[in-house]
Structures are given as C-alpha cells and as structure tokens.
Design a protein around this nucleic acid. Structure first.
Lengths: 248, 248
DNA sequence: CGTGTTCTTGATGATCATCAAAGGTGGTGG
DNA sequence: CCACCACCTTTGATGATCATCAAGAACACG
C-alpha cells in the first residue's frame, strides 16, 4: 500500500536483519514484509524450518490444512486433479511466496516441489493467534490474496481466449516479470518446470508447447542456453503475440 | 419484482430494523454477515443506495477504484477487455455479492449490469477507516477473497481442460448451486446472461454454446420454460459430463 | 554406460471457430 | 394495438487449430 514503508525499511536493513527475513520469505514478497522487527521475532518464534527434495509433495488436494508455508528456496507448482487423471496446474510459486493459506478445513489444491526446497512452516492455529495480535499480518494476507486473484484472472484470459503460441508468450513474459521481482541476474531465466508442467498450466498438450518453443527459437525470439534456462531475446515480439497484433 | 416497492422499503429503513441487512447484502452472503447490529449501523451510516438500469456500466477496467459495492438486487458480469476487442467474462455476481474491492489504485476489470439493479455503495477511504475499527470486516473480506480465488481456479480448470459441453454443464450446475444459496424456488433458474456472455465466460463462441444447449435439450437434460430461465432436469447427466465419464 | 525421463518432430483427425443466413423475441414508436 | 426493428438465438457448411498417436533423439541419473 505505502511504498515508502518498504524502502525505508530496506534502507536500514543490516546484515543481521536480512538473515531473519530470509527464513520467513524475502522482504519483497513474503508474509512478514509489513511487520516491525519485534513482530517479526514473534512470528519467527512460532515457525519451523523444513527442507525437502525435488518432487516432494508439500500436501495433497483435500488434505487437512494444518500448516501455512512460505517458500524460502526453490520452486513449486499448484495443481488440481481431474477425475480422468489429467491435471490442471493452477500456478507456480517462487522464493518468498506464501503457500497453503486457506479459510477452509482442507487444501483446495495439491502442491509439489519442482526443485529441492527450503520452507518455513507455521501451524494454522498459531498463525490465527498471531493474526489476532498483529492486524498488519491479516491485512498483508488480504493484499496477497487479491494479487493472486488478479493473477489467476489473467491466466483465465490467457487460457480462455488466446491461441497456443500467445499463451506461451504470455507465460514467458510473466516468468520474466516475476524473475525481476526476485532480482534474478540478467535476462537468463530459471525455468525448473517441464514442458508437461507448462502445458498443464496453459491448457495445452506438451507437444504443442514443444512446437511453440521451437517456433520461438527458430524466429530468434528466445534461446535456451542450458537445461531449465531460457533467455528472452525479443520481448517485443512476444508482447505483440500476446496482444494479438496478428488479428488487427 | 417491483422496484418501487423495494425502494420505498429501503427509504424508510431505520437503524436496528432487521431490514437493514438487506441493504448491505443478505446476511448469508454479504459483507456484513459477521457484524453485530451496532457495527452494522455504523457501516450503514457510511453507505449510500443507488439504482441502475440494465446494461449500465458500474465501472470500467482501469478506472480509479473509488467505491466498493454490494449487489442488493440484480445480476452483473465482470469482464476483461482484450486488445482485439473480444472480452473474457471473469465471472457473474448475484444478490449479496461484493463488487470492486481491490488493494490497487484502479479496478482490474469492468463490471456491467445484466439486469436492472440496486446497489449499496461505500467510498474506499470510508471502508478502510471502518476496517480499522472493525477487524471482523477485514477478516470477512479475506474469507470472501479466498472463496473467489477458489472459484476462479475452478473456472480455470473448466476452461483449460474440459470440452465445450462439459464446460457448459459445469456452468449450469454452478448456477444451480449459487441459486440454492440465494434460496431460489424450485429448480427454475434465473439466467439473465446471453449466450454470448456465457461463451465469453467459458472461453467458447456463442454458436458452440447454442449448439451445446440444444444438445442438452434434445437429450432431455434441461428445459427452458421461458426466456432467461433454465430448468435442470438431469443433474446427474450433467455431472457425469463434467467429471468426464466419457473418458474412462 | 545403459536406462528411464524428457523433448522433439511428424502424420492424422476431432473439436471447435468462423462465416453465413434464417427464425425468434422483445421493445419501441407510429 | 400492431408493426417494425434491433438483438438474440439457432442451424448449417467449411476450415484452422490443436489433440492424439507414434517414434526417434537428447538428456540426466545411477
């Protein structure tokens, strides 16, 4: 809400501080951004650290929602299972993101790690208790929820109204944006998800995603300098595809 | 539904009157559900009533988010505009729903009324002020946001992974559910949206929606006893279509 | 160095969009 | 009150996009 808040806080951040914040998600994106140092300590006292290997399931869809997580390191995907076994990827989560906060009794989706990861975990009742004491926490959660809602609506537009290549273009640009927010170096993007993951996110098949990738590569719009790394060479071209220049 | 009747009722409302809740959305779904009578009066003091005709735009995408609305009577649709002029319908709003709460400076989508409607409107700053005094309000908003997020994710699954008829089936069942929550009589569903609206919601064309409707009618799964009214005759059949029985 | 997984590429076909036109329905003004 | 008009809906014909099926290549991993 108030950008000044974040900047001034960052300005007086010391080496000792940064250590604390990391464990609760980065200051930029995490749950604790608006908290005072004292409040942060309070939250930290209730939280515990866990580390998990790649492909580990954080929790299953329908499981009792016992914890709320924040991703300290690594990448995860949120999925819904369909009766026929296929899955829809609802989104990806990166460093600093909150995972698994819900009002209901159970998690409405499953979360699987794509990479090895470190997480910070707090029990639901403890978080509820903290929220009563720290209204800023609740406010923060509301802000994050609204952001996520807007992102999901974006995704709905993409999946509902755009042809295959435009969906992939939008996805790559999205990745670039979220990478910037996480202060990634240069134009090289970390992309730990497989073609199948991307396809399930975009409502396509992995073959179509693969073909679109090669099309982009042939046109010199992107490069893949290494496995799980993409570099966007012509963001403008991707943007035009997303905005449907082809149509007008 | 006689507009005059309801208007006069709203006009002679007094604090403490049980009718008060109506103006702020029903107790079941509205913003004020968890509030005490005293708190309700406080909110009501800040709110104002408005009435609008069908097709009126409540606000445009990108407009400054000056108010938060709750729908007292009527139906509305939320839309995002694409550069090529087509639109994606993000969802529909019914009696008791909140419209237009956002953290950002501007509304991230447009809202258009499908029917004549009555709304209760409160200025953003006043709501923020109220939220500081009444934590229950903020909590309620968070709950609603999480519910809406889940609904949007559902929609994403439908649009991303289901064939045309299954999407329409899911939509009709959804309408039925939300109708139940609004205590609609019998199995007759009010459906004020056009085929084009439905198509834009489901990521289809209006022709495909029309064809799916006639298919359902021919199979005896639904009936349309009047304009803008549907009756679901075989909910089971629709469910099977949604769950993809055809596939297994 | 093999083996399973992921990625690419090709061939084919189904689903659904597009284009087109006619039949309904409600609203409006004569 | 009726007639006209705009809009919504239905239905048909055609074709493009993308899913499916299939097989080989590249890659990571043990």
């Amino acid at each position: 809400m108030n950008p000044l808040d974040a900047t001034s806080r960052a300005a007086r951040m010391l080496p000792g501080d940064s250590e604390v914040c990391e464990t609760c998600g980065s200051r930029v994106t995490g749950l604790c951004r608006p908290l005072s140092e004292a409040a942060l300590d309070e939250v930290m006292g209730e939280a515990e650290q866990i580390a998990l290997g790649p492909r580990a399931m954080l929790f299953q869809e329908g499981e009792k929602a016992a914890h709320v997580f924040t991703l300290v390191q690594g990448t995860a995907k949120l999925t819904r299972l369909l009766p026929d076994g296929r899955e829809q990827v609802l989104g990806f989560r990166f460093v600093g993101d909150i995972i698994g906060y819900t009002t209901g009794e159970t998690y409405p989706f499953a979360v699987q790690l794509l990479t090895g990861a470190k997480l910070c975990r707090i029990e639901r009742p403890k978080l509820e208790e903290l929220m009563r004491r720290l209204p800023a926490l609740e406010r923060r959660l509301l802000d994050l929820c609204i952001q996520e809602l807007a992102a999901t609506q974006d995704q709905l537009v993409s999946v509902g109204r755009r042809p295959a290549e435009a969906r992939l273009a939008a996805f790559l640009l999205q990745l670039g944006e979220s990478g910037k927010r996480r202060l990634q170096v240069g134009t090289q993007l970390d992309m730990p998800m497989t073609r199948a993951d991307i396809a399930d996110f975009l409502g396509l098949t992995l073959e179509t995603v693969s073909r679109s990738f090669t099309a982009f590569r042939r046109r010199g719009w992107v490069r893949e300098p290494a496995h799980n790394v993409v570099e966007i060479l012509k963001p403008q071209a991707l943007h035009e595809l997303v905005d449907g220049v082809a149509f007008e």
